[in-house]
Amino acid sequence: MMCYKKNSARIAPAPQPLPADMQDAIDAVMRGAPPLLLFATMARDRRLFFKFFNSGLLDRGHLTIRQREIVIDRVTAPCGAEYEWGVHVAAFADRARLTEDQIASLVAGYSADPCWDDEDRVLIDLVDTLHATCTVDDELWGRLTDRFSDEAILELLMLAGTYRTVSYLVNGLALPLEPGARRFGG
């Protein structure tokens, strides 16, 4: 069994300075803040770094920031990916208009919790169903098509899958939490 220190990742980040194109990609996402440890670690391998960065779905797409963040937070929480969940809640919860009750529900609650409306519920049900079965049944598909375009549904499925992959990365690397990131319990 591999041993690692509680506050250090299993793989060290890339040495600084990074090549200009990699740094530019990070700067575009971080907007002047220091790079996240995940980004700096992915920068160890040029090919993997750009595959990872090119698969990002944080741009303006078919979803609102609220829809996107509900999906991301609900994917990462049951995966135990506190690193990624904490980064997203700290950075986007206010802009996504997520209340403290909703943030707590995304970790340990249910779509039936009174803090959610019907559109939010279908997103939570989608993530929970994908997490449990890796598919979408006809009833849930109907609820999705009542509210979202085909393109938005494609984006929802990709977003959930992308953040499942991100959860594998941050958990497998045992990344310590970022400064200022939220914790599951608070």
Results as ranks from 00 to 15, higher is better:
residue 114 P to T: 07
residue 125 D to Q: 13
residue 121 R to C: 06
residue 104 A to L: 02
residue 44 R to N: 15
residue 168 Y to I: 05
residue 110 Y to Q: 14
residue 98 L to H: 08
residue 72 I to C: 08
residue 126 L to Y: 06
residue 54 N to M: 02
residue 179 P to E: 14
residue 86 G to L: 01
residue 66 R to D: 01
residue 173 L to R: 11
residue 157 L to K: 05
residue 114 P to I: 06
residue 50 F to E: 04
residue 147 R to P: 01
residue 63 L to Q: 11
residue 135 T to W: 13
residue 176 P to I: 04
residue 70 I to W: 07
residue 180 G to I: 03
residue 116 W to T: 03
residue 81 A to V: 04
residue 139 E to Y: 07
residue 49 F to K: 12
residue 73 D to L: 15
residue 64 T to E: 07
residue 37 L to H: 11
residue 49 F to H: 12
residue 157 L to C: 13
residue 170 V to Q: 12
residue 114 P to D: 12
residue 157 L to G: 07
residue 139 E to T: 14
residue 152 A to Y: 09
residue 129 T to I: 00
residue 101 D to A: 15
residue 150 D to A: 15
residue 146 D to A: 15
residue 45 D to S: 14
residue 85 W to D: 06
residue 123 L to Y: 04
residue 138 D to M: 13
residue 112 A to P: 00
residue 83 Y to R: 08
residue 178 E to H: 14
residue 147 R to E: 08
residue 128 D to Q: 11
residue 44 R to C: 12
residue 132 A to N: 05
residue 46 R to I: 01
residue 176 P to E: 07
residue 126 L to K: 05
residue 47 R to I: 05
residue 53 F to D: 09
residue 71 V to W: 09
residue 98 L to N: 04
residue 131 H to P: 00
residue 133 T to E: 15
residue 170 V to S: 10
residue 39 F to R: 07
residue 89 V to R: 15
